[in-house]
Structure formats: C-alpha cells, structure tokens
Amino acid sequence: MVINRDRYLNKLIARKENGLIKVITGIMRCGKSFLLFELYHEYLNSVGVSDDNIVELALDEAINAK
C-alpha cells in the first residue's frame, strides 16, 4: 500500500528553487526515503529532469558511510 505524501511533496516542490538545502527528518520508517527516492524523483522526471541529473545518496548504506 502506497501512502501519498502530497503535503510534504508539495512543500518540497514549492521550495525547490529557493537555494537552500532541504533537511527531511522524522522517526525511522515514516517514509522519508520513499518521499525523496520515489515521489520527488517521479516529480523531477515529470518536469523534464533526466535521471542523469539526479543524485541520490542513501547515507544509511554501508558503502556510503565512509
């Protein structure tokens, strides 16, 4: 079951061009990664941003911890 995060996605979209870094916080397993890696990624693709121009880095993976 997919829970749409429209409220949070719309906040990200509205502030996309303000030049500030966005920090997404929350308890474990609340959907932070899904919001960014799936929903926001889909949004970026829908407005013409290619996958070659999207950088995704999961800092909880061991390979990215160093």
Rank of each mutant, 00 (worst) to 15 (best):
I54Q: 08
F37V: 04
D51F: 05
N18V: 04
C30G: 03
N4L: 00
I21G: 04
A14E: 06
N4W: 00
A14M: 09
R15A: 13
L57E: 07
E56F: 03
N64L: 04
I63R: 15
G26S: 11
I13L: 13
I24V: 12
T25C: 13
E38V: 00
S50D: 08
G19R: 13
D51I: 08
I24N: 03
R7S: 14
G19I: 10
F37I: 04
R7M: 12
T25W: 14
R7P: 00
L57Y: 06
E61G: 05
G26E: 12
I3P: 05
L44T: 06
D52N: 03
K11V: 09
D52I: 01
E61Q: 12
I54W: 11
K11S: 09
L9E: 00
M28C: 09
H41V: 08
L59K: 01
K11L: 15
L9C: 02
E61T: 10
L36R: 06
R7G: 13
F37T: 03
R7I: 13
I24G: 02
E17M: 15
G19L: 14
S46C: 10
L36C: 14
D60L: 05
D52M: 00
N10Q: 15
C30H: 02
I21Q: 07
N4R: 01
A65E: 10
E38D: 03
E56T: 04
L20C: 12
S33T: 10
A14G: 08
L57F: 07
K66Y: 06
K22R: 08
E42T: 08
L35S: 03
A65P: 10
E42Y: 09
A62V: 13
N4S: 06
T25I: 15
V55N: 13
N45A: 07
I63S: 15
I24H: 02
N45I: 11
A65C: 11
D6G: 14
K22P: 05
Y43D: 02
S33W: 02
I63T: 15
L12P: 03
S33C: 01
I24C: 05
I13P: 12
N64M: 06
A65Y: 11
I27R: 14
V49M: 09
I3Y: 03
G48C: 04
R5Q: 11
I63Q: 15
G19K: 15
L44H: 08
E42V: 08
I3V: 14
I3D: 05
E17D: 15
H41N: 13
I63A: 15
M1E: 13
A65D: 09
L39R: 04
M28S: 10
M1A: 14
Y40C: 00
V49K: 08
A58D: 12
R7Q: 13
V55S: 13
